[in-house]
């Protein structure tokens, strides 16, 4: 039985997790204080994912940049591709929280959405 020690990254508590594995199968997660920790532990050893945050340019608004994020977590291996896809994106103000900035980023099926309001 393989044992992997992780730090849960869901919230700043940073619970120390112990994930017990039998081959590719997760047998048990311990050390977590909430359900998110269990889910994270299982995912991290099989298919690690992250929420990616960045910024894109905005024109005609009260700010020059608008912050964005992936609406859901995406596979870790797709992070750089995702950020690269945002490099030349430019949007027009107004932008509102939750507006889709790029749909299906880097073939992940996940949209990039705005995380701040930029009014005209």
């Amino acid at each position: 039985m393989e044992v992997r020690n992780l730090i849960c990254i869901n919230c700043p508590m940073g619970c120390p997790l112990t994930v017990e594995m039998d081959g590719d199968e997760v047998v048990n997660v311990s050390g977590n204080t909430c359900k998110r920790g269990d889910t994270y532990g299982r995912k991290e050893v099989t298919n690690p994912t992250r929420i990616v945050t960045s910024t894109v340019k905005v024109t005609g608004g009260e700010a020059d940049m608008v912050s964005v994020k992936t609406k859901q977590d995406i596979p870790k291996g797709k992070i750089f591709e995702c950020v690269k896809a945002l490099k030349d994106v430019e949007v027009q103000a107004p932008v509102h929280i939750g507006d889709v900035i790029v749909s299906d980023v880097a073939g992940t099926g996940v949209d990039i959405i705005a995380t701040r309001n930029v009014l005209k």
Partner: peptide
């Protein structure tokens, strides 16, 4: 919060994971 565009805010307050600007909003 306006410049903290990363996520991880609000799990205690709103029970969801927000970025800094969203939490401020």
């Amino acid at each position: 919060l306006n410049q903290c565009i990363h996520n991880g805010f609000g799990l205690h307050t709103f029970k969801e994971e927000l970025t800094g600007p969203e939490y401020a909003d």
